[in-house]
Simulated scan of single mutants.
Amino acid sequence: MIRTNNTGQFENELTPDLTPLLDIIFIVMVFLLLTASVKLESLEVELPQTETKVLQTTDSDPVTINLTAQPPYWALQGKAVEGWEAFQQAVLKEIKTNPEKPVVIGADKAGSVENMLKLLAFLQQHDIKATQLLMEEDNS
């Protein structure tokens, strides 16, 4: 049997030191979190329609980008632009000359979804934030 002094200075030496055990547990936990594969899942949702008008007023005129259903598919500030490459250069030039202006995208309902995704990918690649997507009010 182990005896200790009444002063209590040896009582702390009899308890096990858990610090190394905690270190190993945290290392294993971090390893498992970093190596766990996360499967991203998406759900198909039907977006709600609104009957109210949402108006946003800005102090400056916005940079407007339009997607049409018929060629030429691209328009900037109300002027048609022939070709995707010319449109990209025109958008970058307009954003560089007016960085404080918000960007508004208006797409034709019968327009190509592929063109819309192409435009959104281009804006994201160049870190251009679109502040509004124009839509018609649902009157049904």
Rank of each mutant, 00 (worst) to 15 (best):
G83V: 09
E85Y: 05
L76H: 12
G78K: 06
L76M: 10
K93Y: 08
Q88D: 03
N98D: 12
V91F: 11
E82I: 13
G111S: 15
E94L: 01
A107N: 06
A110F: 08
A80V: 08
K96D: 12
L117C: 07
L76K: 03
K118Q: 15
K79D: 08
K96A: 14
A75G: 02
I95N: 03
E85V: 12
W84G: 03
A90R: 08
W84D: 10
K109Y: 10
M116F: 14
E82Q: 13
P72A: 08
K96T: 08
P102W: 03
S112H: 00
L67P: 03
F87L: 01
T68A: 06
A69P: 07
A107R: 15
T97E: 14
A110C: 07
I105A: 02
A86W: 09
Q70G: 02
G106N: 14
A80D: 13
G106Y: 06
K93S: 12
L119A: 03
V91Y: 00
A80N: 05
N98H: 11
W84T: 10
M116Q: 13
E100H: 12
K96N: 12
E114P: 04
T68G: 01
K79A: 12
A75E: 06
A69H: 07
A69D: 13
S112C: 07
A86V: 00
A80Q: 13
G111T: 06
V81S: 01
E94T: 15
V104H: 09
K79Q: 14
K96I: 01
G83P: 09
A75S: 15
I105D: 04
A75N: 06
G111F: 08
A110V: 00
E100D: 15
L117M: 14
V113M: 07
I105C: 03
K79H: 08
M116E: 04
K79C: 03
F87Q: 06
K101I: 06
A86R: 10
E114G: 13
A75Y: 02
V113R: 11
L67C: 08
A110E: 14
E114T: 15
F87R: 04
A69C: 00
Q89T: 12
P102T: 02
I105L: 09
N98Q: 10
L67Q: 06
M116Y: 10
I95L: 07
A90D: 02
K109F: 07
A69Q: 05
G106F: 11
Q89C: 01
G111E: 04
W74D: 02
E114H: 10
K93H: 11
A110H: 05
V81R: 11
T97G: 10
P71C: 04
L119V: 05
D108M: 08
G111I: 02
E114W: 07
A107W: 09
D108P: 00
P72T: 11
N115G: 00
D108E: 15
V81C: 04
N115T: 05
E85T: 15
P102C: 09
E85D: 14
V113E: 14
K118E: 11
K79V: 13
G106C: 12
P102G: 08
E100L: 12
